[in-house]
Simulated assay, not measured.
Amino acid sequence: MAKNMGAADKIIRIIIAAIVGILYFTGIISGTLGIILLVLAGVFVLTSMISFCPLYVPFGIKTCKIKEK
């Protein structure tokens, strides 16, 4: 897997995941919607940690500045 996520993309995803986590654990969002958003937040954190988003591949999106040889 080649990296396809830049630093700004990773930071934005982690911030969104943190906000969703806070909203879920404070009870502002709950139920099925809360669980779905919490799973999505987990995916955001995971993809940020490995710097690879599988959804970017079919669309040819790369937000990282490193060029492959």
Rank of each mutant, 00 (worst) to 15 (best):
I11D: 08
T32S: 11
T47M: 11
G21Q: 05
G60S: 06
I50P: 00
A7M: 15
Y56F: 13
A41W: 04
T63C: 02
Y56H: 14
I22C: 01
I29W: 00
I22L: 10
C53S: 02
I11V: 15
V57Y: 04
G42E: 05
R13I: 09
V45H: 02
V39G: 04
K62A: 13
I14M: 14
S48Q: 07
A41N: 07
I35G: 06
A18K: 05
I11G: 12
V45P: 01
V39H: 00
I50A: 00
G6A: 09
L40W: 03
K67P: 00
L38G: 00
G6C: 08
F59E: 13
T32M: 10
G21M: 12
L55K: 05
V43M: 06
C64I: 12
A2F: 14
I19G: 05
A41R: 03
G27L: 06
L46K: 02
A2V: 14
A8H: 12
T32W: 10
S48K: 04
G27H: 06
I50E: 01
V57G: 06
F52I: 09
I35V: 11
S48D: 03
L40P: 00
I14L: 15
I61W: 06
G60P: 05
G6V: 08
S30G: 05
F25T: 13
S30F: 07
C53H: 02
E68A: 11
I11N: 08
I29R: 01
F44A: 04
G21D: 06
I12G: 08
K69V: 13
Y56L: 07
C64D: 15
C53E: 00
L46M: 06
